[in-house]
Computed example of a mutant assay.
Amino acid sequence: MKKDQLLTRRAALLAGGVGAAATAGVLTAVTGDVPAGSGPAAGAQARSPRSASAYRLQPLTGYGPPHAAPRRTLVRREPLLRVSGRGRTIVLTFDDGPDPRYTPDVLDTLAEYDVRAMFFVCGEMAADSRGLLSRMTDEGHVVGNHTWSHPLLTRLTRRQIRREMERTSEVIEETCGERPEWFRAPYGAWNRATFQIGAELGMEPLAWTLDTLDWTTPGTRSIVRRVENGAAPGVVVLSHDAGGDRSQSVRALRRYLPGLLDSGYRVTVPRRHYA
């Protein structure tokens, strides 16, 4: 699928109640390495805005490099939604890239303010932009797995899901020198197979707490407003650096990032917890 077709695909999914929207609304916390009870996972395109207090949940992960070599990855029943850290921490994540039209500007802005973010990359995009992938790693960002071609995983066989994840992990490892430790399902569409296969490949599932809805191109001011209104300790922000025209996302980042820092937020990346 061409990346500039994702917007139409997302709109169709929302209209049909598939994927992320079908799993929206569950923000029950998971503590330590014990999975939360069964239930729908995090929603990708939540339609109703939530107040900042809605995000103040029990944190899931910490920060900084792991203190010990990984042993095994827990098979979860739902994705992680938020993180913990010292003080007012917040995580910025960018999906669907890298895209040579927009990703460099995102990286430039992050570098200007000396902050780290997470990039959930699609393998077919990463394979064509390995220089950007290398730059992400060199500048301290976390590169996660967002599948190869951005399919709706809940409609694929286990073999197809594994191939989508494996191919992307291989590109990341070849380019960055290590396999990804995090993955995110396209459209926020998770099922048991995605959690199991992701764990078998050594990855934790990370969703988000705050969707900027930048994929709808609502306008730069609207994106900035969503981040400013939804910011709270532990929040994971979802934005995009590919999959369509992301010029609004680039401009919005330039506006809200200094504001977050001036408000005392520490923009950082999560640390893995191993079972």
Rank of each mutant, 00 (worst) to 15 (best):
E181W: 05
R163V: 11
E174S: 12
I172N: 06
S169H: 06
T212I: 03
T168G: 06
P180K: 07
G177H: 13
R192K: 15
T194Q: 06
I161A: 04
I172Q: 13
L206H: 00
I172R: 04
F195K: 11
L210F: 09
E181P: 14
S169E: 08
G177N: 09
F195M: 10
Y187M: 10
V171Y: 02
D211T: 04
Q196C: 12
R163Y: 00
F195C: 11
E200M: 04
T212G: 06
P180R: 04
M165P: 02
G198H: 04
A185G: 07
A193C: 11
M165T: 10
G177R: 13
A207F: 07
W190G: 03
L201C: 05
E174D: 15
P205N: 03
T212S: 02
A207L: 02
F183M: 03
A207M: 04
G202C: 00
W208N: 03
F183V: 00
R163C: 13
I172A: 05
E200S: 09
G188A: 15
W190E: 05
G188R: 08
D211C: 08
S169A: 05
Q196N: 08
W182P: 05
P205Y: 00
A207Q: 01
L210N: 02
R163T: 13
G198V: 03
Q196V: 14
L210E: 01
A185L: 05
E170P: 05
W190C: 02
R179I: 10
W190T: 04
R184I: 01
N191E: 14
A199Q: 12
V171T: 05
G188C: 05
V171M: 07
L210H: 00
R179W: 14
R167G: 09
E170V: 11
T168L: 13
W208V: 02
G198R: 03
L206P: 03
T194H: 06
R167F: 08
T212N: 01
F183D: 02
R192A: 15
E204D: 07
P205T: 05
E164W: 09
E178R: 14
C176E: 10
D211H: 01
E174P: 11
Q196M: 11
W208D: 01
N191P: 09
R162D: 09
A207V: 03
Q196T: 13
I161N: 02
T175R: 08
N191A: 09
F195A: 08
M165E: 07
A185M: 13
Y187L: 15
P180F: 10
E178A: 15
Y187A: 15
I197M: 03
T209L: 07
E178P: 10
Y187N: 15
R162E: 10
C176G: 14
L206Y: 02
A189R: 12
A193S: 15
T212D: 08
A185T: 03
G177V: 13
G177S: 12
D211K: 01
G202E: 01
T194A: 12
T212Y: 04
A193F: 13
T212H: 14
F195Q: 09
L201T: 11
I172L: 08
R167T: 07
M203N: 07
R167I: 04
W208E: 00
T175Q: 11
R167Q: 14
C176T: 15
L210M: 04
A199S: 13
R192S: 15
N191D: 15
M203V: 04
N191G: 03
T209S: 13
Y187V: 15
R167H: 12
A207N: 00
E204Y: 01
I172T: 06
G188I: 11
